[in-house]
């Protein structure tokens, strides 16, 4: 390029002046555009927009005094035992070594006939319906988000509603815990707690093993 320019200079100034007016001021943008697209591709491929999501959990206070702890009615309590190979064992009522409860097994899979989702939904149908109703109403009357949230929270806190005790044994995976917590929010169960497995329940798990 430099050579070409020098030759032009040598050939006379008069010509150049005339030509300079005619030649358009277009510069070759191709390399710049190449670079721009390269950078664009790089940033597009490296960017991840999804921020991690989170579920908030409130655990019961550990050293609450005996009388402060709520007594739960056996008839509305459902215990969910999580164990190895993503299996679930559940029973109604409270753990009583003298009178072993009737246990049922379930799976996380929605497609399976004994999925835990169906069980929980069936047991919590009344509150679930109320929440669905609230959502519909909110949409119709366009409530603010806070109102809806507060109303749903109040419905979920129903004293006669289902109480779920989540107990996970040592062979369960962390994923199982998250899945069952998910199920709580799907089935509109507001009252649940993560508690430890008792020795008698360990027996139950062992006995229900296929």
């Amino acid at each position: 390029m430099a050579e070409v320019q020098q030759q032009e200079q040598g050939s006379g100034k008069k010509h150049k002046k005339v030509r300079a007016k005619k030649t358009s001021t277009h510069i070759d943008m191709t390399p710049m555009v190449d670079l721009a697209f390269l950078l664009l591709t790089f940033f597009m491929l490296t960017t991840t927009f999804s921020r991690p999501k989170t579920m908030e959990i409130n655990m019961p206070v550990k050293d609450a005094k005996e009388e402060e702890q709520q007594k739960v009615a056996a008839s509305q309590t459902l215990s969910v035992l999580l164990t190895e190979k993503d299996r679930i064992i559940w029973y109604m009522g409270v753990d009583d070594p003298a009178m072993p409860p009737q246990t049922n097994s379930a799976t996380f899979s929605l497609a399976s006939p004994n999925s835990i989702h169906k069980v929980l939904l069936e047991k919590n149908q009344r509150i679930y319906d109320q929440v669905v109703e609230l959502r519909k109403q909110a949409e119709k009357e366009s409530w603010p988000q806070d109102t809806l949230k507060a109303r749903i929270a109040r419905t979920k806190a129903d004293k006669k509603g289902l109480i779920v005790l989540i107990k996970s044994d040592d062979k369960a995976r962390y994923k199982n815990l998250v899945d069952i917590l998910d199920e709580m929010s799907v089935c509109a169960i507001g009252r649940f707690a993560i508690v430890d497995v008792t020795p008698s329940e360990q027996e139950l798990i062992k006995n229900t093993n296929q």
Binding site: S50, M55, M59, K62, V178, D179, E183
Partner: peptide, 28 residues
Amino acid sequence: LQDNKINKFNLITSLEAEGEPVAVAGKK
């Protein structure tokens, strides 16, 4: 955490893939 009087905390999760039914979990 509970020993340190923390009873409220977050579990970090990723968002369920779209279209995938909820709780299809554990089918491995």
